[in-house]
Simulated scan of single mutants.
Amino acid sequence: MLAILGITAPIFILIGIGFLCCSGGIVSREQAGGMGRFVITLALPALVIKALLEHPLEAVINWNYMLAYGAGSLASFAVGYAIARWGRRDSPGGAALAGLGSSVSNSGFVGYPIVVMVIGSPAAVALALGMMIENLLMIPLALTIAELGRRQDGSVWQALGGTLRNLVRHPVLIAITIGMVLAILDIRPPAVLMRVIEMLAMASAPVALFVIGASLTGLKVGAMYTDMAQLAVGKLLFHPLLVMACFLLFPVDDPGLRMAGVLMAAAPMMSIFPILGARYGLEGRCAAALVATTVVSFLSISLFLWLLH
Rank of each mutant, 00 (worst) to 15 (best):
F12E: 04
G162R: 06
D186A: 06
V110E: 07
P113C: 06
G149D: 13
R37P: 15
P268T: 03
C246N: 03
V168T: 10
V221L: 07
A96V: 06
S121F: 06
S271Y: 01
M66G: 00
A75N: 05
G24Y: 08
V116I: 08
M259N: 08
L193H: 03
A3Y: 09
L231H: 13
V125C: 00
L305Q: 13
A3W: 13
M131T: 00
M224C: 08
W86Q: 07
L160F: 09
A46M: 14
F109Q: 08
L305K: 13
M264R: 00
R88T: 08
G281D: 11
Y225G: 05
L241C: 11
L219F: 06
P122R: 02
V60I: 06
I11C: 08
A75E: 02
K50V: 04
Y65S: 02
F12A: 05
L193R: 01
M202H: 08
L257E: 07
A159R: 00
A43P: 11
M66P: 00
L167P: 03
E54R: 02
L209N: 12
I301Y: 02
R89N: 14
L167M: 10
G24W: 12
L299G: 09
L127Y: 00
F247W: 10
D153G: 04
L137I: 10
T294M: 01
S23A: 14
A128Y: 00
A146R: 04
I133C: 04
Q158L: 10
L282T: 02
M259H: 05
L305D: 13
L137W: 02
G36I: 11
A51M: 06
V295W: 03
L290Q: 00
A289M: 14
G36Q: 11
I272W: 00
P92I: 10
M138N: 05
F238T: 09
L216E: 01
A123F: 04
A232R: 07
L219Y: 03
Y81W: 14
A75I: 01
D254T: 01
S76T: 03
Y81Q: 14
F77S: 12
V252F: 05
P206K: 01
T177H: 12
I17A: 15
G218H: 06
F77G: 07
A289K: 08
P171Y: 05
G87F: 10
I275E: 02
A96S: 13
V79F: 04
M202C: 08
V211Q: 09
T217I: 00
V252P: 08
T41M: 10
L236P: 15
C22E: 12
M264A: 05
E134N: 04
A203D: 10
H239S: 12
S102R: 12
V262P: 11
L185Y: 05
A84S: 03
L74N: 00
G284V: 03
S204W: 01
I13S: 13
G281F: 06
A287D: 02
A146P: 11
A51Q: 01
N135M: 09
R150Y: 10
G6R: 10
G24L: 11
E147T: 04
L299A: 09
G93W: 03
